[in-house]
Design a protein around this nucleic acid. Structure first.
Length: 879
RNA sequence: GGGCUCGUGGUCUAGCGGUAUGACGUCGCCCUUACACGGCGGAGGUCACCGGUUCGAAUCCGGUCGGGCCCA
């Protein structure tokens, strides 16, 4: 711990003025952030259900409790916290709930790994308990990170999807949708991961490029090309294009499947590509989605060749029990032996894989639960929501438009919300519990009433569980307080913030469920953020070694620096490349701000602040005008969630306008005494107060630290700035003031003078009266006079610049003589040079651009230098 | 193959009809009582390429090439 930190540590936790000699020279984020973290109270962020303020309810994404809050989460949460804090300051009753989406496969896998078991080694109940315990531990760890980042979450509205309180709502929503016909059970092909042993939804399938082999073989006289010979046993037809002349003679016939011998019909279908392979394709149940399509279209039988463990079933005869890859090898060998394998080619193909484990998915038919997807009503609701940025709506539309299958919501797993139904053993009727008896695990309990259809008393509980998205897609219903008794007062929520990667899942499912259960859009607005890429521009991954962990960043530069990085990194919706540069820039801005604060506090302390002091000086009026502009720009940006614009505006004002220009101008007056000091002090105070409040949503620790010295309580309880100051003259005249100072500084620089070097008399001829109260004089260390009359300058030629590139080649040896003759010309002749000149007795032409006269200026008999700023002339006396 | 997005000084980025914003880096000068984690100034860009619309295009339109994302 450095010595400079001592002040921050010892400083009593209260708001109030301190004496300037106590202000530490350097800002120690570690100490400050920890102190405020320990001071702030959770209650300050609670949503008040009885409040009269307008509600602003955020449907926060519930992260998966892996134990690690990654940088992508951090970006997402920064955005949420920026507007949550902003809206609070704007007078809204903000709910920023924190949820945890617990159920799912990754936790099951982790539990198996940690305990060296498989899920079948212990009872379902025991396994669930282990999952819950691991999840609780992980949540605890992630809560710490959230707090460290100063996210102003409403912990009184925390929800955990694995708790009975939450998943009974999931079950209630299931029962309601079952009743209204949205949910049905059916035997239907679904995407199935044989490694995870569960059905998955299309949203959970990711596609990968792989190289595979296309095998051409003789299929009862017809050549067929297939990438999956192991599905031969599941072949139910051979399809050809109706216009394909090669196969006209086969119309209406059937073929015998090689190696297996069953007969399959020839069908004709427009979807067959005659150019691919041999133009004839075998339809199997099921090789891909197209097979399912054809199978339905042509009303073909079902032959299940692969079971839920990825093994060949009994119908495959001697291949039964082999895995699909073993079976493929065996069949290819047998084809060769039978002499029917013609050739093999390499083929690039995209295979659907399980998004969790990357295992190629199989399409297996089975009894599953589905939710009907009614495209039009989802599309309508999506259009009623305001999308930030707008083009993200297109992604949703594209996804909706290409949906073909209903949403498969049943999973053959354990750690998930149970499907609350029983089946009557006698008649097969689906029996559901009373809503008041939820939550319910049908594998542990029995229905309270006999079967309503047959009066039977024997039941089997459903062992399948629900897709995790069934939990999270009602997050908005949960946070708005839905309990099945009607539409909650605060539904729909105001906003859903999320990443663009889960538009097709979380956003899509949430809209679907909200429409199905509430007949309404779930939120007024959706704010979509981009993904965080590594510094090399690639997706962060352990194998690339480009992963940035929020904790590391916070440890080195502080939470506020990370938050600034999130704000300025990218425009809304764009992917953002991580960059240490931006973090360092953020950290430097804090250093600068801290020094501005120190300077200001030292001034405030001297005589106190008179908030009613008249503001007369031009520089002071200029500062207020620029401050007013900044407030307007920043406020507008905040309303549109353009955090990069907002923070940029604040930084520009603080660094450029306030520190580099205003303070430099006003310093002199602040060091002296009197009315004009009071004026400067007052505007400095206005800027300080306003900056603190505008920075509060972005860098809450820093803003609180600075604001606390003003003894006005917590900055986070202040209203958002409403400062306006209209003074057009101050803006233009002040800009002129700043420009003049800049030009004179440049003059000093160009003439090798130090910036604080004294200058003599400087006269500024401006079109309008400018009363700077001596600010420019002190800043420039010169005797500055502002005048509105015309400058009376005498121009004197003080020398000649020859263009040797012209003079040399033209006159050769006479060049020197030429220059001497020119120098001897009178000032009048130089100002208007003749066409010819007498050189060594001959009249010679003066070439174009041979020379330029150098001028010097005289003002009231004294030599001066002249610089111009637009139509303003500045003269500087030469000593 | 389709959709969406993007291609701007060394790097990243703003602008989205009037020859270009800022950050980091780089070079030079300056330790001026808030700040050298600073100040001031400079160098560095045919705004991917080709064509069109226009008095005028980085900006609009068409095409080409190349990234990224989503989907077949």
């Amino acid at each position: 711990m450095s010595i400079r930190s001592l002040y921050f540590i010892k400083r009593p936790i209260r708001y109030g003025m301190v004496s300037s000699d106590q202000l530490p020279k350097n800002y120690d984020f570690a100490v400050v952030e920890e102190r405020w973290r320990n001071t702030w109270r959770d209650e300050d962020h609670y949503f008040d259900r009885n409040s009269k303020k307008p509600p602003f309810v955020i449907d926060t994404p519930p992260p998966y409790p892996t134990g690690n809050f990654h940088i992508g989460n951090a970006l997402n949460w920064c955005y949420i916290d920026f507007f949550a804090r902003y809206k609070r300051m704007k007078g809204y009753n903000v709910m920023f709930p924190q949820g945890w989406d617990c159920h799912g496969l990754p936790t099951e896998v982790k539990v198996e790994e940690l305990n060296h078991i498989t899920k079948n080694d212990v009872s379902r109940e025991e396994f669930r308990k282990m999952c819950r315990e691991l999840t609780e531990k992980n949540i605890e760890q992630m809560r710490l990170t959230l707090r460290r980042m100063a996210f102003s979450a409403d912990w009184s509205n925390e929800y955990i999807t694995m708790t009975p309180k939450y998943y009974s709502k999931t079950q209630l929503s299931f029962l309601r949708m079952l009743k209204s016909g949205y949910i049905y059970q059916d035997e239907h092909p679904v995407n199935y991961c044989t490694r995870c042993e569960t059905a998955i939804a299309f949203a959970e399938v990711t596609y990968e490029d792989r190289e595979t082999q296309l095998n051409f073989f003789d299929f009862d006289g017809v050549e067929i090309a297939t990438t999956r010979p192991e599905l031969l046993v599941a072949c139910v037809a051979v399809a050809v294009h109706p216009a394909d002349d090669r196969y006209h003679n086969l119309k209406g016939k059937s073929l015998k499947v090689p190696l297996f011998g069953h007969s399959v019909p020839i069908v004709q279908d427009e979807a067959v590509d005659p150019k691919f392979g041999s133009g004839a394709v075998m339809i199997c149940t099921f090789g891909d989605k197209q097979d399912v399509h054809w199978w339905k279209q042509h009303n073909l039988p079902l032959r299940k060749a692969i079971d839920r463990n990825g093994k060949m079933t009994g119908i495959s005869g001697k291949y039964a029990g082999l895995s699909t890859t073993e079976c493929r090898k065996a069949i290819l060998l047998d084809m060769k032996a039978a002499g029917i394998l013609k050739k093999q080619e390499k083929l690039e193909q995209r295979v659907g894989t399980c998004w969790r484990c990357k295992t190629p998915i199989e399409i297996l038919s089975g009894r599953q639960w589905f939710i009907r997807i009614k495209q039009q009503e989802i599309r309508d609701a999506a259009h009623q929501i305001k999308w930030y940025p707008e083009h993200m709506l297109l992604r949703m539309e594209n996804w909706i438009d290409q949906m073909e299958w209903d949403w498969c919501i049943s999973r053959q797993r354990i750690f998930a919300t149970p499907i609350p139904v029983w089946f009557c053993t006698k008649c097969g009727e689906i029996v559901v519990p009373d809503e008041k008896d939820l939550p319910c695990d049908p594998t542990l309990t029995k229905p309270k009433h006999p079967c309503p259809k047959c009066g039977g008393n024997e039941f089997t509980g459903e062992e399948d569980v629900l897709d995790t998205w069934m939990d999270s897609s009602i997050s908005v219903l949960n946070v708005t307080g839905w309990d099945g008794t009607g539409k909650p007062k605060i539904f729909p929520a105001q906003i859903r913030p999320q990443g663009h990667d889960i538009i097709r899942t979380w956003a899509f499912y949430s809209i679907l469920r909200s429409v199905a259960l509430m007949r309404s859009k779930p939120w007024d607005q959706i704010l979509v953020n981009g993904m965080v890429l590594g510094e090399d521009g690639f997706k962060m991954s352990k194998s690339r070694g480009n992963v940035i962990v929020p904790e590391e960043l916070v440890g080195r530069y502080g939470a506020d620096a990370l938050r600034q990085w999130a704000a300025t990194g990218a425009a809304l919706g764009s992917d953002i490349m991580f960059s240490w540069n931006d973090v360092i820039a953020a950290s430097r801005f804090q250093t600068k701000m801290w020094n501005i604060a120190r300077f200001a506090l030292i001034q405030f302390e001297k005589e106190g602040i008179d908030e009613n002091a008249p503001v007369t000086s031009l520089a002071d009026r200029w500062l207020l005008a620029r401050l007013s502009d900044t407030v307007q720009v920043v406020s507008a940006a905040m309303e549109n969630y353009e955090f990069d614009e907002a923070l940029k505006g604040i930084r520009e004002f603080a660094w450029d306008v306030l520190a580099d220009n205003y303070i430099e101008l006003a310093k002199g007056r602040l060091y002296s005494e009197g009315a004009s000091r009071k004026s400067a002090c007052r505007v400095l105070y206005a800027a300080y107060d306003t900056l603190c409040r505008m920075l509060a949503p972005f860098i809450p620790y820093f803003a609180e630290e600075c604001y606390s010295y003003l003894n006005k309580g917590s900055v986070h309880k202040q209203p958002w700035v409403a400062f306006t100051y209209d003074d057009a003259a101050a803006r233009t005249e002040g800009d002129l003031l700043v420009k003049v100072v800049a030009e004179v500084r440049k003059y000093k620089h160009d003439n090798g003078l130090a910036l604080n070097a004294p200058l003599g008399k400087v006269t500024v001829y401006a079109p309008q009266t400018v009363d700077d109260e001596g600010d420019t004089a002190r800043t420039l260390n010169a005797d500055v006079h502002w005048r509105t009359d015309k400058a009376h300058l005498d121009r004197v030629i003080s020398g000649i610049d020859f263009n040797r590139a012209v003079v040399g080649p033209t006159f050769r040896k006479q060049a020197g003589a030429f220059m001497e003759v020119v120098k001897a010309l009178s000032p009048e002749e130089l100002a208007h040079p003749p066409k010819t000149i007498r050189l060594d007795g001959t009249e010679v032409a003066i070439p174009e651009n041979a020379f330029m006269p150098k001028y010097s200026y005289m003002e009231e008999g004294a030599k001066v230098n002249v610089i111009t700023v637009g139509d303003v002339i500045v003269t500087i006396a030469i000593k």
